[in-house]
Each structure stands twice: as structure tokens, then as C-alpha cells.
């Protein structure tokens, strides 16, 4: 599975999450954790979270806390909705489920790939994985829903 694809006017419709990069990497919670934009296409976005001692959940093992993985996947799936519909429309997370399949390897960057697989007038359905190099050996799997402040379609 390619983790990087060339950006072009065709990928991501009319919404370009890389333009968010400057904001995401400096301001707010994502920036505080060191989160960065990585790649995107229509209906999907990849964000990455470089390893940091500040994000460790278990000092003995050096394993990352699970909280930053939630934040990474919340951002990646949230952005994927806008690349699916081709524009920014205000939305809020209704729910999110994260399955922790294995600990992230200490020292490695965690990559979060979010996909939006269905949009209705009010709802966007998303899923995604977090991995640390091999998408076939994920760290976490997520599924969630976003609700639009107005309508997604029309």
C-alpha cells in the first residue's frame, strides 16, 4: 500500500490539508504533540507523530501513551472528511473507537491514515489505522463518525 502519493489538483478535491500544515504544526493540541501533515488524496489523509519522550506512557519500556494515538487519528480522520467532500465544512466528532493492537515501537514515528468511506447529508463515516512503518502491521485501528454542523451534501 503506497503511503505517499504525489499531490495533484485531482487528489483531495478542492480541499488541501497540506495548507493546514503550518497551522497544525504550530498551534493547538496537534502542534503541542508534534503532529505533522504527511500526505493526502481524495477521501484520505495521513498525519504523522514523531516519537518523543514527552509522549511516553510507560517510562520503563519507553512506549508511547495511547492518548496521542487518539489525537493523531482524530485529526487524520477529521481531515479525510474534507478531502472526501472537496471542501471545508464545520463538523464535530460524534464518536470514535480505537483498538490498540500492539504498542508502537519506541523511537519510531507513528503514521496515522484516516479514510472517509461514506458521507450522508448529516454524517461522515470514517476509519483508519495507525502504524509505525508497515501498514500491514498496525499499531491501532479506528472507526468513528462525524456530524456536520449544517449539512454535508447539497
Amino acid at each position: 500500500m503506497p503511503s505517499r502519493e504525489p499531490d495533484s489538483p485531482q487528489t483531495g478535491g478542492g480541499f488541501d490539508p497540506s495548507a493546514f500544515e503550518g497551522i497544525l504544526s504550530k498551534l493547538g493540541h496537534g502542534g503541542h504533540l508534534g503532529m505533522r501533515y504527511r500526505a493526502h488524496g481524495i477521501g484520505w489523509v495521513e498525519m504523522e507523530l514523531p516519537y518523543s519522550d514527552r509522549l511516553v506512557g510507560d517510562v520503563e519500556s519507553g512506549i508511547l501513551a495511547s492518548g496521542p494515538i487518539i489525537s493523531l487519528m482524530d485529526n487524520a480522520t477529521s481531515l479525510s472528511v474534507w478531502t472526501a467532500i472537496g471542501e471545508f465544512r464545520p463538523q464535530v466528532t460524534l464518536d470514535l473507537r480505537v483498538d490498540y493492537m500492539r504498542p508502537a515501537t519506541p523511537g519510531k514515528t507513528v503514521i496515522g491514515r484516516g479514510e472517509c468511506y461514506k458521507v450522508t447529508r448529516s454524517m461522515a463515516f470514517v476509519r483508519g489505522i495507525a502504524h509505525d512503518g508497515d501498514p500491514d502491521d498496525p499499531v491501532a485501528h479506528v472507526a468513528g463518525t462525524f456530524i456536520r454542523v449544517d449539512n454535508f451534501l447539497g
Binding site: 498551534l27 493540541h29 496537534g30 503541542h32 501513551a65 489525537s71 482524530d74
Partner: peptide, 22 residues
């Protein structure tokens, strides 16, 4: 603070989740 901010003026969902998980 900025460390838990999502869209301006609101708490980030991931930050809330991290707090609840702790």
C-alpha cells in the same frame, strides 16, 4: 490552553480523550 485547543476556542477531542483515558 493552546496545548489542548482544537479549533480556536474549543477543546480538542483528542485532548479530552487523553484526559479521560488517564
Amino acid at each position: 490552553g493552546p496545548h489542548v485547543m482544537g479549533r480556536p476556542g474549543f477543546l480538542h477531542g483528542g485532548a479530552m480523550s487523553g484526559l479521560m483515558e488517564i
